[in-house]
Computed example of a mutant assay.
Amino acid sequence: MGDVDVAVIGSGQSGLATAHALLRKGLRPVVLEASERTAGSWPRYYDSLTLFSPARYSSLPGMPFPGGDPDRYPHRDEVIAYLTAYAARLDADIRTHSHVTAVHADGPGFVLDLKGGSRLAARAVVAASGTFGRPHRPELPGLEQFTGTVLHAAGYRRPQPFAGQRVIVVGAGNSAVQIAAELAPTAQVTLTSRHPVKFARPRILGRDLHFWLKRTGIDTVPLGRLLRTPPTQLVIDDGRYRDAVAAGAPDRRELFTAIEGGKVTWPDGSTEEADTILLATGYRPDLPYLARLGALDDTGHPLHRDGVSSVHPGLTFAGLEWQRSLASNSLRGVGRDAAWVARHLAVHLSRT
């Protein structure tokens, strides 16, 4: 059981950016990745996923997003290749097949239990395991009684298995709209949610929306301190999705009011059979390994301020949604959070 400066749990964008920042502070991070590759959850996202930020705004610190038009919107496989290359260039100890099952306090530091029985002692820990492993399944009227298929977007890959089906996609964010529009040519699809879809144009006055977010400073406003709940997610759309919804492919309805067997009841009282309900309802922090530390609230969310644990100062978080700013868990913004975490840990470890 060897001692390390900082154990970083997860090798997605947050873990890699944090490792980069820690190295710049002269610390020795060990990055622990449960899977067989260093690209976080990206290989498990649906095949057609594209970023809603252009390549020029989708880089981690120290390595621009490569190739092609910098104003293009990279697709999933490009992001996987980019993160894999970033990890390869990073002078850090990255250990795949290293699934952390529990973290224990050990004096001022920590001991990490790994699947298979090995243990690792670390002076500090960064939880950068993201959210993909904990899909959010909200309480919806009658959902538990539905006799068809209930699937979360985490399990969706491509439209072909749903050909000819009646599919209801629940959600109002980017993934919900993208998946519903992709399914519409091969299935009868309804997009439904409690709140309306809010579309935003990707370009304003000839400039990409993210240029204005950066130029005005909105991207770095400390929303984590100012807002109790995050704002409604905007769907970045050049017009194709708005037009598709207007044409009824998919159609848009308010959330169903009941389910009985395979039948869904809509707010107007009409009912119909459905084959699949697909939940594009987001994710929650995936931090089961911290349960014994008392570092989580009753819902499994971390107790923290700006990414620093309120319970253990040597425990930090990277890439949480709204951790510090609008862009906290995005490729374009996670570098700022990573730098903040590294600065905190450098000071903390100098005192312990």
Rank of each mutant, 00 (worst) to 15 (best):
D286P: 03
P285M: 01
L331V: 01
L183W: 03
L303T: 00
N174L: 04
H104M: 10
V245T: 11
W340Q: 02
V347R: 14
A102H: 05
V8C: 09
S41F: 10
E260L: 01
Q188C: 06
T190E: 12
R207G: 05
S350E: 12
P313A: 08
L326H: 12
Q145H: 09
A127E: 05
V103L: 05
D251S: 14
A338N: 05
L349Y: 04
Q165K: 15
H348T: 13
T186Y: 01
S310M: 07
T186F: 03
P185Y: 03
R95I: 10
D93R: 14
V170L: 10
G130P: 03
G155C: 13
G40F: 02
P43N: 12
A249V: 08
T50V: 12
T192I: 01
G26L: 09
Y156C: 10
R201C: 08
A85R: 15
L349T: 09
L140P: 05
R332M: 06
H301T: 00
G67F: 03
A181V: 15
S41L: 10
A124K: 02
A339D: 03
S325M: 08
T265N: 05
H97I: 09
L345G: 13
V125C: 08
K214M: 15
T190H: 04
P108A: 13
L255P: 02
F162S: 07
D238T: 03
V8W: 01
S270I: 04
G2F: 10
R72A: 15
D251N: 09
I80K: 01
A55Q: 02
G206R: 07
P135H: 10
R253Y: 05
P61K: 01
I168G: 08
T316Q: 14
D91N: 14
P54W: 03
P285D: 04
T50I: 11
G262T: 11
S53H: 05
H75Y: 11
A88Q: 12
P202A: 05
V167L: 07
